[in-house]
Every structure is written in C-alpha cells, then in structure tokens.
Amino acid sequence: MKILLANKFYYPRGGDCIYTLNVESLLKNKGHEVAIFAMQHPENLPSTYQHYFPSETTFSLFTSLLESFQRPLGSKEVIQKFNYLVDDFQPDIVHLNNIHSQLSPVIAKIAYQRGIKVVWTLHDYKLLCPRYDCLRNGYTPCEQCFSDKIKVIKNRCMKNSLPASFLSYLEAIKWTKEKLEKYTTTFIAPSRFISAKMIQGGFDAGKIVILNNFIDIKKTEYEPFQKEDYYAYVGRLSIEKGINTLVKTAQQLPYKLKIAGTGPLWTDLKKNVSPENIEWLGHQSWPEIKELVGKARFTIIPSEWYENNPLSALESLCLGTPVLGANIGGIPELIEEEKNGMLFDSKNENDLKDKIEIMFSKEFDYQSIAKESCKRYAAEHYYTEIMKIYQQ
C-alpha cells in the first residue's frame, strides 16, 4: 500500500511526532511505500518529500497577521503543496496525526474530495477543545467547548489572549464536527478515555476504533531487571504534566527522584528546587532513558490533564518497571493496581506521598510486567490492527 502520513513536525518533538516516526518505520519495514507531509522546521529529519513541506509558521509576535489568520483555516500554500504531493505519490491512505493550526484539516478535506481514505489518530482533544488539552487557561480541567465553542473566547483559553482565543474559535467553527466526520473514514483512539470523550462531544462511535499506541519492543530488551533505590520521571517539564506537584511532594520524602526532560519550567525548577534527593538530568537520549527507567524502582506519571496513552508509560512497563500514575485520562487503563503499578488522585499531594511510600515498600514481578507489556504493546500487534483499519 501507499500511505501518506501527515503531522505538524517531522522530528521527535513529542508523543505525536514519535508515533508518526514509529508508524513510518513500521510500515516501511513491512514493504509499504510511505510519504510524509509536515511543516518545514530546522530540526526536521531529512525526507525525500521535504520539498513538498509548507513553510514554517510559529504564531509568534514575528508571524504576520495574515499568515496567523490563514494557516489554521487552510492556507493557499498548504493546499497547493499537499495537492502536489498527492498528485505525485498517489496514496491509498492519508493517515493524519496532529495537523491543526500549522497544516489544518484542509488536507483531510482535499483527500476526501479526491476519494482517498482518511485515517486520523487522536493524540489530544483538539477536535473537541480549541485549546487541545481541555484545560481552561492551562490550569483547570474544562469541557465547556464540547458543546459551545464560544467559551474559548469568553474564558480567553489561548494564552489568556483575546486575539489568540478568537482565532482558535474561528478554527473550531471552520472545521466543525460534521465536516471532520465527513472527511474521515476512521478515527483511531489510543485510549478508551479519548474515545468516550469524542462520543460525548457528539462524534459517531461507529467511526472510532480503540487501538493503543505501540513501541519497538526490541529496544526495551533489558535484563536482569536489577533495580536501584530511586524512582524516575521522564517527560516534559510543564504545569499540565504535574511536575510541580511531584517536586513539592518529593521534597517531603527521603527517596531519590531522578527527573529526565526539559520544558517551560526547566529553568525555574532547576534554580529554585535543589534538594539532595532530586536529580535533574535534562534531555536524555533513548539509551540513557532505557538505563534510567530500567534500573528505577518505578516511574511516575503525575499528570493533571487528560493524558491519552503516554508512550513513557508503555516504555516503562515494557522495561519491566512499574508505573505510579495519576488517576486521570487514559492512564488508569494502563495500570493494574499492585500488579504493574498503582494510581493516585491527580493533584492530591497527600495521596501521592502515601503511594510513593507504598511503591517503595512493595515487591513487583518485574519480568512478568515486561513480558505481558511487550505482548500488549508490540509493533507486530499494532501492524495487524492498523492494516485492518486501512483495508476495511
């Protein structure tokens, strides 16, 4: 088959990008032809198709007003370059990922109009929430826009800015649920939670298939499961990830916490939080993460937003390392209490503190966790299921 993968960025920037790269690799290894459509960016990986990529847009103070207005609604450049790529590549499937704003759903419309099947993997809640994360102003869980998109303006949800929120409102009413459903053959929901939210927001349940994300389990081969006396956080250092709650709680405990990752809170956290039991590792490559997570007693996902199907949890479990996760979003679907981890109430420092202490006192069957997780999240299983979706 010939599959065209579309995502805003073409480098390992976040979970959506890593997923796109993993799908590309998986499909190519199985003998399929794969093309890429993304926005130009200095960190993009080399691609045969990069001359089709539309120019970079950042929505910053330096971005022209016209460009900021046009891109989310479907710019001439995106339309032209996507049509060129479709003409030259002639895909059987257009598989969308995170495309809003920088690319826009105009590419779904083009594919539909040209009779090409559209599959869309849902990495966040952008089809329901103009902000994408169901957090009002980035702090408070909110679902008001599921039924009334004007709330994004009233609450100034985008950067607490009226112009930015107004643009997001225009984007939402341009690309309505009815249009997106019409253009898309199948939505892939990586968790039951996001599937339920899509249905709650009025999307047709018959168009949604639940399929967990996957990883290359060969890269998680790690024995003999010898653990050291610390726990670890791997991920973005930002408010919605719950890193402030974690750090505040960790300072009250004697256990060693190793934190890998960067983000908007990196500078402030390093400057203002420096107890001996917290180690800041910054950005880490996969071999370093593998070593860090493989030797940890457990990893922690303290999210305060509707986390979908976090790859960091899948990687941890496939390495045989239990997960202590916030009871929010799709995280509970990954954790069997006291078998491969535990849950705590999101934002609840006291419950988090108690559960960290319990996790350090518990014994887990690390080899069993790795074996069962590798079976569940293997690329081979994903390939079988994704081909059913492509071919249905």
Rank of each mutant, 00 (worst) to 15 (best):
Lys258Glu: 11
Lys271Asp: 07
Gln113Phe: 09
Lys149Pro: 13
Asn160Ile: 07
Val119Thr: 00
Phe203Pro: 12
Asn137Thr: 03
Gly263Asp: 13
Phe203Asp: 08
Asp124Ser: 11
Lys362Arg: 12
Ile328Lys: 07
Ser368Glu: 06
Pro42Met: 11
Leu343Ala: 00
Asp229Tyr: 05
Gly15Gln: 09
Lys8Tyr: 08
Gly341Glu: 06
Leu257Tyr: 06
Val152Lys: 02
Tyr49Phe: 15
Gln113Ile: 04
Ile335Arg: 00
Leu343His: 01
Tyr230Asn: 02
Asn98Asp: 13
Tyr306Thr: 03
Pro141Gly: 00
Val323Thr: 10
Met342Phe: 10
Glu67Val: 14
Tyr377Thr: 07
Phe53Tyr: 15
Leu352Thr: 06
Leu324Thr: 03
Gly263Gln: 14
Ile153His: 12
Ile208Asp: 05
Trp280His: 10
Phe62Trp: 07
Ser316Glu: 00
Thr262Glu: 15
Lys290Met: 06
Lys30Tyr: 05
Cys17Thr: 14
Gly294Gln: 11
Ile208Ser: 03
Lys256His: 00
Lys271Tyr: 00
Glu221Gly: 04
Ile79Lys: 14
Phe59Arg: 02
Val209Ile: 14
Lys174Gln: 13
Lys207Pro: 04
His381Gln: 15
Phe59Trp: 00
Lys248His: 06
Trp280Lys: 09
Glu385His: 13
Lys271Leu: 08
Lys248Pro: 01
Leu246Met: 04
Ala164Arg: 12
Gly206Arg: 10
Arg136Thr: 08
Tyr112Trp: 13
Lys290Arg: 15
Tyr233Thr: 02
Asn83Val: 02
Pro224Ile: 12
Tyr377Asn: 06
Ser147Val: 05
His123Gly: 10
Ile300Met: 03
Gly261Met: 07
Leu317Pro: 14
Leu66Gln: 12
Ile210Leu: 04
Leu180Pro: 06
Lys28Asp: 00
Trp305Ser: 03
Trp175Asp: 14
Leu281Arg: 06
Glu385Asp: 12
Glu315Ser: 04
Tyr231Pro: 01
Ala379Gln: 04
Ser285Gln: 12
Asn350Trp: 06
Val78Trp: 10
Glu56Arg: 14
Asn83Ile: 02
Gly261Asp: 11
Phe364Lys: 02
Glu304Tyr: 07
Ala111Cys: 12
Phe62Leu: 08
Asp345Val: 14
Phe225Arg: 09
Pro190Gly: 09
Lys117Met: 03
Gln144His: 04
Asn83Thr: 11
Ser104Lys: 09
Gln392Cys: 10
Asn348Glu: 03
Val247Leu: 15
Asn22Phe: 00
Asp87Val: 02
Pro264Asn: 11
Leu317Ile: 13
Asn97Pro: 05
Leu26Asp: 10
Thr262Asp: 14
Glu276Asp: 15
Ser101Phe: 12
Phe203Leu: 12
Ile188Lys: 02
Lys218Thr: 11
Lys355Ala: 06
Gly263Arg: 14
Thr185Phe: 15
Cys145Ile: 05
Leu265Ser: 08
Gln50Asp: 13
Ile99Glu: 01
Phe225His: 13
Tyr84Phe: 13
Pro224Ser: 13
